[in-house]
Structure formats: structure tokens, C-alpha cells
Computed example of a mutant assay.
Amino acid sequence: MVLSCLMLFAASFLAATILPFSSEVILFALLREGYPPFVLLATATLGNTLGSFANYGLGRWLLHYRDRRWFYFSGEQIDKGQRWFQHYGFWVLLLAWLPVVGDALTLVAGVMKVRVWLFLLLVAIGKGLRYLTILGLSSWWPL
């Protein structure tokens, strides 16, 4: 069980970073194998939240590399994220679970120097609700 949870944690972490990855398939497979849903929810949420925190760190400390060719986000994506923050405020971090846009939002949160505790709280709530929804919907999926 520990190895499976570590695999889910790693997949969830990578899925939240700027690297293209998905954790839902592993979550779904472990759920079907009979792992406790609460353990899977906690593991996936923690991994995904910490992966978003890596993006936050990129935004906070590595933004001066944004003009480099290898930098993942375009200037246009960063500007769009900053506009979202200015318009909606830090509450937009509840949407950090969204594909691509969520990664940009967490990076922009670092740029905007959102308080770490607020960042972690809002991102964890959004990502936890996302995984909870996936677990709930998985009961409708045929074996």
C-alpha cells in the first residue's frame, strides 16, 4: 500500500507542476483495487498541492528567466494570470485545479507574492474538492 500511495503522490505532484502529467488514472485504478478512499484523497490532494507550491516557487524566485526559450509559460499567459488576480483577487486560487490555467495561476501567485499560508489553504481546498469529485464520480463508472 505504501508504494502505491507514493506512486499516487508522485503522479499528483507532477500533474500540478508545469510538467504534463495526469494523476486521475492512478487514483481511479487504486480506488478500484480497494484502497481506502480517504487515504487516496489525502495523498492525491497533498501531492497536487505541493506540486502547485513548486509552481509558486518558480513564480516567486525564477521569474527573471521568463524570457528564456525553455521557460514553460509565455509572457501572454503570465499577463493573463495577473489580470485574473487583479480582477478576482486571491480567491482565484480555488481554481488552481484547472488544467494549464491552474498551473499559470499558481505561478502568478508566486509572482504576486501571495502569502504562503493563504496560497496553500486555497489551493488545497480547490484540489481536495476536485479529487473528492473524481472519487464520487468513480462510483458511477463501470468496472
Rank of each mutant, 00 (worst) to 15 (best):
V25F: 13
N55H: 06
A124N: 06
R83Y: 06
Y65M: 11
M112V: 12
S139L: 13
I18L: 15
W140R: 10
T17N: 04
W117Y: 13
V100R: 04
R115M: 11
F13C: 00
I78S: 03
R60H: 10
Y35P: 01
P20R: 02
G110I: 04
V108A: 05
P99H: 06
S12L: 08
V108Y: 02
L30M: 12
W140L: 15
R32V: 14
L46R: 05
L132R: 05
K80G: 04
G128M: 04
R32E: 12
F13Y: 10
L14Q: 07
Y35N: 08
T106A: 10
L129W: 07
V92N: 04
Q77E: 15
G89L: 14
G34P: 09
F38W: 15
H64Y: 14
V123G: 01
H87R: 15
R115H: 14
G102I: 07
W84L: 15
Y56Q: 00
I125M: 12
S22G: 15
D103I: 04
L120R: 01
L3Q: 13
A15K: 00
Y35D: 06
G34T: 11
W61R: 11
W141E: 08
S74Q: 05
L94V: 09
G34M: 08
L58G: 11
R32I: 14
I134C: 11
T45F: 06
L137M: 14
R68D: 05
L40M: 09
S23I: 04
W70V: 07
L98N: 08
S12G: 13
G57N: 05
G128L: 11
S12R: 00
F71Y: 14
S74M: 08
A15L: 00
L121V: 12
E33F: 12
P20H: 09
T49Q: 04
L27A: 09
W91Y: 13
G81S: 11
L27H: 05
Y35A: 13
M7P: 01
A29G: 11
L105K: 10
R130A: 10
Y65D: 00
Y35W: 12
K113D: 12
L93H: 07
G57W: 04
Y65K: 11
W140Y: 15
F85H: 04
W70E: 08
G47Q: 00
F13V: 07
A96R: 01
S139C: 10
L105W: 04
Y72H: 09
W91L: 13
G57M: 11
G102Q: 07
L40C: 08
A16D: 07
A11R: 03
F73T: 01
G128I: 02
R68A: 06
F38C: 05
L121F: 14
T106M: 06
Y72N: 03
L98V: 14
S138I: 11
T49N: 02
T17M: 07
D103F: 09
K80I: 01
R115C: 02
F73P: 00
L6P: 05
V123D: 11
H87Y: 14
L27I: 09
R115I: 00
L121H: 03
A11W: 00
F21H: 12
L31V: 09
W70N: 07
Y35F: 15
W70T: 00
L93T: 00
I134S: 02
G51T: 10
A29Y: 13
R69C: 03
